[in-house]
Simulated scan of single mutants.
Amino acid sequence: MAKVRNRIIYFIFILLVIILGLGSRYFSDFLPKWVHLYLGDILWALMIFFIFGFLFKRKNTFWIAMVSLLFSLSIEFSQLYQAQWINEIRHTTIGGLVLGYGFLWSDLLAYTVGIAIGILLEKHIIFYND
């Protein structure tokens, strides 16, 4: 019998990560600079991992991680495209949170760390095993 993710748990984790991510931006003046620079991107990728885990509850962890990483990298590389129409979307609150503003190599590492945390949480905390 195939193992299946519990969508309620994943929904709760998604909400917690969103709250932590927004909190890291809101309280950035009170946090160390590295937290302000990287934690939001790490949490964004972690949220993407949980969203894909929520949507594809029967896929294995490796598949979820690879799709999450490809999605995250695609969003980051899309920031190299600077047409007026997409920049107008980026300057909305939700557009900026989802699409970001400018390409940074360091974000690629942050996304990888966020997805790695998702793998560890899934394997050792949520107890979903392939």
Rank of each mutant, 00 (worst) to 15 (best):
92 T>A: 06
115 I>D: 00
107 D>I: 05
60 N>L: 07
63 W>F: 15
91 H>R: 12
55 L>A: 14
60 N>D: 15
109 L>M: 13
67 V>N: 00
127 F>R: 14
71 F>E: 01
114 G>E: 02
92 T>F: 05
63 W>P: 01
126 I>F: 12
85 W>P: 07
70 L>C: 13
128 Y>E: 07
114 G>S: 09
113 V>D: 00
66 M>D: 03
86 I>E: 01
123 K>T: 11
68 S>C: 04
123 K>F: 09
103 F>K: 04
105 W>A: 11
91 H>W: 08
111 Y>D: 03
117 I>F: 06
96 G>Y: 07
80 L>D: 09
84 Q>M: 10
94 I>W: 11
82 Q>Y: 07
87 N>E: 14
82 Q>L: 08
95 G>V: 01
89 I>C: 05
120 L>E: 04
66 M>F: 13
115 I>V: 12
102 G>W: 11
113 V>C: 02
78 S>C: 09
72 S>A: 12
114 G>R: 01
59 K>V: 06
98 V>C: 02
77 F>Y: 14
89 I>D: 03
101 Y>P: 00
56 F>E: 04
100 G>H: 04
66 M>P: 00
112 T>L: 15
64 I>H: 00
85 W>F: 11
123 K>Y: 10
90 R>C: 09
69 L>P: 00
80 L>N: 12
70 L>G: 14
124 H>Q: 13
128 Y>S: 02
67 V>E: 04
99 L>H: 00
62 F>T: 12
83 A>Y: 11
90 R>I: 10
69 L>V: 06
127 F>K: 15
102 G>E: 13
85 W>Q: 08
98 V>P: 02
100 G>M: 04
129 N>C: 09
127 F>E: 13
